[in-house]
């Protein structure tokens, strides 16, 4: 009985450490756990230390891309939003609000799609490919500025039907294995799928560095991996279905602190 107790104490310490980093009053425990709490201490240590976290390589690249002029307009992100060095204040909290409704396309868009919309409209540059290193770099740089802040999905009534469809998809059994997201991540969270612990699927740290990927990836990559895992055909990147799922997951994780860029096994 000694070891489980010691582990519990360690988990409590981690939680306390995170809460301190977020500088927020301790909230009532509602049973929600970040994927961080399901990791081994060794992997947690990589995420806690920015000098070790390989995702910081993308953040560093993102800061460089931010200041670099591009496209026919010859403008950079910095031309509108201020230099990368000031971005910590200008971009603070942005990642907590996405996906958000975009009036131009009349649907919710993710942070990556927002970055690409900016590129096309304001920089008059070509959109970056999904999961391209440059897009992930910019996304991780922006997400990093919200680290420690609570996830705050917008209370936009136009998002409601999309979010409801997302929840429906979350509970829909799909694929040859006939499994829904909820069957693993609600009903069997904490149990094991082969050697891996099933987390509660709260997207608190995206884009994140996954040891299995040996690189940075977005939430959509993770979702596509899960969908292929139950042997269903994954939705292509950027489709509204993936955005709807992301909308629901962010609502489900509302109030949890952003850890981006996180590390996962």
């Amino acid at each position: 009985m000694k070891r489980p107790l010691a582990l519990l104490a360690a988990a409590a310490l981690c939680a306390a450490g995170l809460a301190a980093a977020a500088a927020e009053p301790p909230k009532r425990d509602d049973g929600r756990r970040s994927g961080f709490d399901f990791m081994t201490r060794e992997v947690q240590a990589i995420q806690r230390d920015d000098a070790q976290n390989p995702a910081m390589l993308w953040v560093q690249e993102g800061a460089a891309v931010w200041d670099r002029a591009d496209g026919n307009a010859n403008r950079s992100c910095a031309s509108c939003h201020g230099a990368a060095s000031e971005a910590s204040s200008r971009m603070k909290g942005v990642a907590t609000r996405y996906p958000a409704f975009d009036a131009a396309v009349q649907r919710p868009i993710t942070l990556a799609q927002r970055i690409n919309a900016c590129r096309v409209d304001h920089q008059q540059a070509t959109a970056l490919a999904p999961e391209s290193q440059e897009l992930l770099a910019l996304e991780s740089f922006v997400a990093m500025q919200s680290r420690g802040m609570a996830i705050a999905p917008p209370r936009d009534p136009r998002l409601v039907p999309f979010r409801e469809r997302g929840e429906k998809l979350y509970r829909q059994r799909i694929g040859q294995l006939d499994l829904s997201c909820a069957q693993c991540h609600d009903e069997r969270a904490g149990a094991r799928l082969a050697g891996a612990t099933i987390p509660q699927a709260h997207p608190t740290g995206y884009p994140l560095y996954r040891l299995e990927w040996q690189g940075l990836g977005s939430l959509q990559r993770r979702l596509r991996g899960c969908i292929a895992g139950v042997r269903a055909e994954p939705f292509p990147y950027g489709t509204v279905e993936l955005t709807e799922l992301e909308l629901y997951l962010m609502q489900r994780a509302a109030g949890m602190p952003i850890e981006a860029p996180a590390v996962r096994p």
Binding site: A51, Q52, P54, L57, Q214
Partner: peptide, 8 residues
């Protein structure tokens, strides 16, 4: 402490 981006 050093960290470098490389696919290995």
């Amino acid at each position: 402490r050093t960290l470098i981006a490389h696919p290995m």
